[in-house]
Amino acid sequence: MDTTGDTADHTPGDTTGTLDEALERLHTSGPERQGWLSNHGPMAVEALVRHGQAPIVHRWLDYYRAKLEDMPSTDTPVTAANWREALADPRRIADWTEYFERETTERPWRDVLVEWWPRLLPGIAAGATHPVIRVGHAVRTLLTTEETAPRVLELAHGLGYWAARHQPLPVLGRLAPAPSAAAALDAVPPVPVREGGIRERFAGLSAFPVWPPTEGQGLGPDDVHDRLAELVAAAVHRYATHGHGSPIMLVHAATAPNAVLRTLPALPRELWAPSLEAAWAASAAVTAAYSPAAAAPYAPTGLSPEEVFERAARHGDDHTIKFTDTALDVGDGTALAAAVRSIDLNDPVL
């Protein structure tokens, strides 16, 4: 599973500057709309450009931009002295965005990320995991392409969104250790009330299986990386059989840990083990909140990875595009079938 990507001086698949143009269009918008729904635009356009679909990006944005709302007004600047009182306050989204814009202008983006990653990681459930996913897309771009101003600004917007929506999970009990990520996801108990939004469902979480069995203790960095890649693959594969339970929400069981996996190369290795633990908690929480009681059959696909992503791009749904992007990171036949399953389960928008 490749998490490093292309090392060219432009976004893979983009020789036109489309990604920067798209991000500039999107950065006038806030990270949410209608009070809670996340702005998926920056994540979707990054995936589209990376997989060779740059020619359709502006047409896709013309459709998607009409859904978005302007960035909210600022209130009180976030500073090094008052950030704790502003953490997890969604009314401060614009203040947090401006804070990280200043930070990433005055300091290297890696330094800002390393300082804030351990502060934000306990709140990985924020915004239905969308902030960490947005950060993961931004970091992937910065690690594998030229560090242009719009790409650094995108990281600032992702971090600001995460800080404003910061949401720790409840204190959870410990169930029996699971031998594999797939077994661990299968053993996650469902929340007792399967109604309401994700915050209400997360409030009903009680206990998760211990995974990996060592909980990251004693694992070397390479082991942590491999376990995280295993988790992403297991969540993608599980979507093929369980995605029908909630075709939109269950994509996050895979895309959230994959965002963490994409970020690992930018982090010091002492942060890798806690990153694995947080990624497992996020994936398990989404699984507990939305997974159906029974599996369903799925059909293998004979399509190539490129053909699968082209289908997702033509389909146009933002979650489908992002899930297919993660499925292509996994890359095996079951992952491609899961991506096709997401295309079939979700309504097309283009």
Rank of each mutant, 00 (worst) to 15 (best):
P221E: 12
E195G: 00
A282T: 01
A289R: 06
W211H: 14
L250W: 07
P209M: 04
L231V: 04
A281F: 03
I248C: 02
E277G: 15
H242D: 14
E270L: 10
T287H: 03
V251I: 10
I248L: 13
A289G: 09
T263I: 09
R201K: 15
A229C: 14
N258Y: 10
P190G: 10
W272K: 05
G245Q: 07
A288Q: 03
V286H: 13
R238L: 13
L276S: 08
E215D: 14
L264E: 08
P247W: 01
V210E: 14
A285S: 15
A266C: 01
R201P: 08
L231F: 03
T287L: 00
A285P: 08
T255E: 02
L228A: 06
P268V: 02
S283E: 00
D226K: 13
P247E: 00
R262L: 14
T214A: 15
T255I: 10
R194C: 00
R269A: 14
S275E: 11
A284R: 06
T287P: 00
A259V: 12
L264H: 05
L205Q: 03
H252R: 00
S283T: 01
A278E: 11
R201N: 09
P297E: 08
V191E: 03
A293V: 09
L276W: 03
D222T: 13
R194D: 00
L228S: 08
A203W: 00
V251G: 10
G204F: 04
M249V: 03
A293C: 05
A266P: 00
P190R: 14
A240I: 07
R269P: 11
A233R: 14
A295C: 04
R201V: 10
S275K: 12
A295N: 05
A203L: 00
A288I: 02
P209I: 06
P257F: 09
P297M: 04
A279K: 02
N258Q: 11
R269V: 14
P192D: 09
A285Q: 12
V191F: 03
N258K: 06
F208K: 00
G196R: 05
H242A: 14
Y290E: 04
I248W: 12
G245T: 03
V232L: 09
L261Q: 11
G218W: 04
T214G: 13
L231A: 06
L250S: 01
E200C: 04
P297F: 03
Y239W: 11
Y290Q: 00
H237G: 06
E200S: 14
G197N: 15
L250R: 02
P300D: 14
A240N: 07
V193T: 15
V191S: 01
R194Y: 00
P257I: 08
R201Y: 10
D223R: 15
L231R: 06
L250Y: 07
R262V: 07
H225C: 11
